[in-house]
Amino acid sequence: MKPTAQIISWILQLTIITLLAPAAYAKLTAHPDAVALFTTLEMEPAGRYIIGFLEAATCALLLNPNSAVHGAILSLGIMIGALIAHLSKIGFDNMFYFSLILIITSSAIIYLRRKQIKSIARMLN
């Protein structure tokens, strides 16, 4: 990885962490907003814990350069789920843009670190 790519990737990783860590915290500590959200989705409380846990795991993975790309894949998945939730059940609100931003940043990290996806890297060189 070139140094610039490295720097950009780190900025994006930290961006995701800053956005995602509070969200994970809110879900795992049963913040009323989070509870309300998952009640709408009829996933309260198990779904809230699962997603909260996955978000926390994402942050952890993103902190380590060796696992960052997997963190990004995970966050992409979660945020596609969030997008589906907004489009199909909740409707547009700020959170919709929130997930859109995270989808874009995650994809960018995946692109920058594509060589680190081991199973794919093996084939592409």
Partner: peptide, 21 residues
Amino acid sequence: AFLGGHFVSFYFHFLTVTFLL
């Protein structure tokens, strides 16, 4: 899975997302 997630249970969307990726 998307249909399942929409009409049956949101949990189906775990599959939706996986297969979408």
